[in-house]
C-alpha cells in the first residue's frame, strides 16, 4: 500500500465517524425529550457534519480522482465505510444516546488532542478546530450521565442499561492496524492504544460520580477498520444515500 492509499484510508476513517454520528444525532430532530435538548443534539449533529465535510474534502483531495466530498458521502458502499461500530448504534432512548455520546466524545477528546500535533497540517488544522466542539460535546454528555445516573430509579436503570449494552463497542476505539501503525511512526496518526488508560480513568471516575457501575471488560466487537459493520449501518446509508442513488447528480 502506498503512502497516498494509507493516508486516504486513514482520512476516511476519521471522516466517517462524524458523518455517521451526524446523521444519527440528526434523527433526534423534533423527537428529543425537551425543545432545548432538541436544539442541543441537532447543534452537535451539525458540528459533526461540518467536521465530516472538511475531512471528506481532504480525502477527495488525497485520492485525486475527481471525486468530491459529496461523492464520498453519498456514493460509497457500506463495506467502504470505516466508522466505529459504536457510532452507528441506534439512538435508543435518551440515555442510550447520551452513553454513546459519552464514550465517543471522551475518546475523541483524547484522540483529537493528539491529532492536533499531527505532522499532516490539514489534519492538525481540522483537529484544532474540532477540539472546541468536542470539549462541549463531552461536557454535555458528562453532565447528563451524572444527572441520569444519580437521578430517579428509572433514569438510573436506563442509563446503566445503555452503558452495559454499548460497552462491547468501546474496545475497538483503541485498536489499530498496519496502516495506522505506519502513520503513527511518522507522526501523522495518534497511537490510539496509548489513550486507553486516560479514557478508562475518565469514564471510571465519571460513572462512579454518577453512581453507576463500570462494566467488566468482556467480549469486544470489532471490524470497522475493514469495513465490517453491524446490521445498523446499512439502514443509515439507505436513508442517507437514497436521493443520490435514485436520482444521480440531483441538485437542490
Amino acid at each position: 500500500m502506498t503512502h497516498q492509499e494509507a493516508l486516504l484510508t486513514y482520512t476516511l476513517r476519521l471522516a466517517d465517524n462524524p458523518l455517521i454520528l451526524g446523521h444519527r444525532l440528526g434523527e433526534w430532530c423534533s423527537k428529543a425529550p425537551i425543545l432545548e435538548e432538541d436544539l442541543a443534539i441537532t447543534n452537535m449533529a451539525l458540528d459533526m457534519i461540518g467536521r465530516a465535510e472538511a475531512l471528506l474534502r481532504y480525502a477527495a483531495e488525497i485520492e485525486n480522482e475527481g471525486r468530491t466530498e459529496d461523492d464520498l458521502a453519498y456514493k460509497r458502499a457500506e463495506r467502504k465505510f470505516y466508522n466505529h461500530l459504536l457510532i452507528e448504534q441506534p439512538n435508543g432512548d435518551f440515555a442510550y444516546t447520551i452513553a454513546r455520546q459519552l464514550f465517543n466524545s471522551a475518546f475523541e477528546f483524547y484522540y483529537y488532542s493528539e491529532l492536533m500535533n499531527s505532522k499532516d497540517e490539514t489534519l492538525a488544522a481540522i483537529a484544532s478546530k474540532s477540539i472546541k466542539e468536542i470539549k462541549y460535546h463531552l461536557k454535555h454528555a458528562s453532565d447528563w450521565t451524572k444527572r441520569l445516573g444519580d437521578g430517579t430509579d428509572e433514569s438510573k436503570q436506563r442509563m446503566q442499561a445503555a452503558i452495559n449494552d454499548l460497552w462491547m463497542y468501546t474496545g475497538e476505539l483503541f485498536e489499530s492496524d498496519e496502516i495506522e501503525d505506519n502513520l503513527s511512526t511518522i507522526g501523522i496518526a495518534p497511537d490510539a492504544s496509548a489513550l486507553k488508560g486516560a479514557w478508562k480513568t475518565y469514564i471510571t471516575d465519571l460513572l462512579s460520580e454518577a453512581k453507576l457501575q463500570i462494566p467488566e471488560d468482556a467480549y469486544m466487537q470489532t471490524g470497522s477498520r475493514d469495513g465490517i459493520h453491524t446490521e445498523h449501518l446499512g439502514f443509515i446509508l439507505a436513508d442517507m444515500q437514497y436521493l443520490q442513488r435514485a436520482y444521480p447528480e440531483a441538485k437542490w
Partner: peptide, 19 residues
C-alpha cells in the same frame, strides 16, 4: 429556556441562543 438546574440551564441557553 427550561432547565432542571443551573448547569443544564446554562447549556440550554448556549444551545438555544448562541448558534
Amino acid at each position: 429556556v427550561h432547565g432542571p438546574d443551573k448547569v443544564i440551564a446554562m447549556q440550554n441557553a448556549r444551545d438555544t441562543y448562541f448558534r
